[in-house]
Nucleic acid binder design. Structure first.
Lengths: 329, 329
DNA sequence: TTGTAGGCGTTATCAC
DNA sequence: GTGATAACGCCTACAA
């Protein structure tokens, strides 16, 4: 069903139908009524692609996420999709995985679809290869990165100050009298590096001779459990463990529970993300809120500002905040 | 950058450029080389909308989800997006929320985008209003519903046998000597009604005088906790509680923990979804695996079969299975 | 107020 | 092997 079909049945030209569809003035009321009736009768819906072709605007926004199953990123995607849908944009969500090639390919796909903007969620997009792909394929539409930043005229970034956040976690534990702290990291993204650096700084100021840093080699609870057992084996005197994400922290809690080590009496535990995982485990988990949701709101605002030709903030850093729960004294 | 720009610079016609782009035969090797060089030089990417217009195929698939933040649905969306992306389809994911109007609107948006198929994830789409909207707007493309079904020639469904699954949960508890069981439901979707019915049947066969059924009025852990306290107040002798989803079950575990009631010694707990939530709580949660992931695989296969004009299954029901963990004896 | 014509970027069908 | 030309569905001057 095209506007020509409608036009023919109404006995008018396609332009008149178009005018009715787009609520333009200068149409005989009778014609308008007749056309509207036919539009309704056939449940006519304009073809977005054809419209986009002539108007040179796709009203498509790309959302790139390493893995949509990661709830830490999904919250943001949800907010952004809802907000943009209300403005008549359609969101194409692509899971890119963690290799540079598929990230670049995803960016190329966004170009094919002629997206009017994109949001890249997660620090894993902060790589030279992504920067190149954006320069090649998406250099004239606004790109907003959440928890990452790349330097290009059309790239905007909303970051969370996880470095000082983790440093504050160390300080919190120190104030409570903890003396031997370990950090378990789950990956090697720029964001995770910042967390590690925050831990190092905190430890340095604290005077602990050496920062105990472990790698869980994965982001599941089981990975966190395994890494925790390693920590305990090497350092039976550890009295505080900070994990780079909540999920591996829950594995840590389980490991301690199995060994009969009391939380927080013997060992304090802190996670990062302030996710639902931290709320449902027992004891509930103290966590560094890195403001994903606020970041998404800010990112969305920046994107909309760009789409509507308003000047906006190029880069912003949101302070993180510790949410204290039962796993710390 | 269009094929005309490339053509002009190469000193050939647009048709030749098009032929090169699409790897068609019948192009002078020299011309091909020259054009390819230019395509690379300008990082040319074809406009998907223009292509779609002439080929009458958008290569867009719509995915409708009530709320992408619900991990239970995200797993499926991930699998489907990855699988279709590999086949060069682009997925538009829409969060519809839980009201009929916005579900219908989402379906209309899919029509505007001329999607070639759609996947509706979640039993909440099984409503008359969605059926109407599909009939109006999407009646000539395959629609696959996960954990739901509507009767129309272009609608396919993959369902999970949650009714017998919950009944089996009741039986499991009965075998372990549990005598006073309660069920906490989180919502009133068709899927949840089936779970309740499964519970009723189980109870009937068991001989418990009356099925204790409570409504958590929400799907958060806090809602589950509140409902559990209600159950315990009304029935202090309860010795087994089944929850319609894992997340509210974790709230139940917390409520019991706070009251010093031992799980599973005094009260057994079972959830539904076999989600990560059940793996990280203490004790770990026995859960009815309603095969979301398998459903998504099946749904995706059905959709691809349709897209590639193969005959396929109209409706299928997957058996659910209990995953026993620490919360049941 | 209305209709005609041209064009958006691409592909397919013809002649040449 | 190559290049006009006509679609695809829609919108927007411009002319009537």
């Amino acid at each position: 069903m095209t506007i020509y079909d409608i036009a023919k049945e109404a006995g008018v030209s396609a332009s008149s139908v178009s005018r009715v569809i787009n609520n333009k003035t200068g149409v005989n009321p009778e014609v308008r009524k007749k056309v509207q009736k036919l539009l309704k009768k056939y449940h006519y819906t304009p073809d977005a692609a054809a419209r986009g072709l002539v108007s040179q605007s796709s009203r498509i926004i790309g959302i790139l996420i390493a893995d949509i199953r990661n709830i830490h990123h999904t919250d943001g995607a949800y907010y952004i999709e809802r907000k943009l849908a209300a403005l008549n944009y359609c969101c194409v969500i692509l899971n890119t995985g963690d290799d540079d090639e598929s990230r670049a390919q995803a960016i190329s796909i966004l170009e094919q679809r002629r997206v009017e903007g994109a949001v890249l969620i997660g620090s894993s997009f902060q790589t030279e290869s992504v920067a190149q792909a954006i320069k090649r394929h998406l250099n004239n539409v606004p790109i907003v990165m959440i928890n990452a930043f790349l330097d290009a005229p059309n790239i905007y970034g909303v970051l969370s100050d996880e470095l000082h956040g983790v440093e504050a976690c160390v300080n919190l534990l120190a104030e409570k009298g903890r003396k031997s702290l370990a950090f378990v990291r789950d990956c090697h993204t720029p964001s995770c590096e910042l967390k590690v650096e925050g831990f190092r700084r905190g430890i340095r100021l604290l005077g602990q001779t050496e920062p105990w840093i472990y790698d869980s080699h994965g982001t599941t609870a089981a990975d966190g459990k395994r890494a925790t057992l390693e920590v305990l084996k090497d350092h039976p005197d550890v009295d505080g463990i900070i994990y780079s994400v909540d999920l591996i922290a829950t594995g840590g809690i389980r490991a301690l529970y199995d060994l009969g080590i009391a939380i927080p009496d013997q060992v304090s535990v802190i996670g990062v993300d302030n996710s639902i995982y931290g709320e449902i485990c027992i004891p509930t988990l103290t966590s560094l809120d890195n403001k994903t949701f606020d970041s998404s709101i800010a990112a969305c605002r920046i994107l909309i500002d760009c789409l509507e030709n308003r000047t906006t903030t190029r880069q912003m850093i949101l302070p993180s905040a510790i949410v204290v729960r039962e796993s710390t004294p």
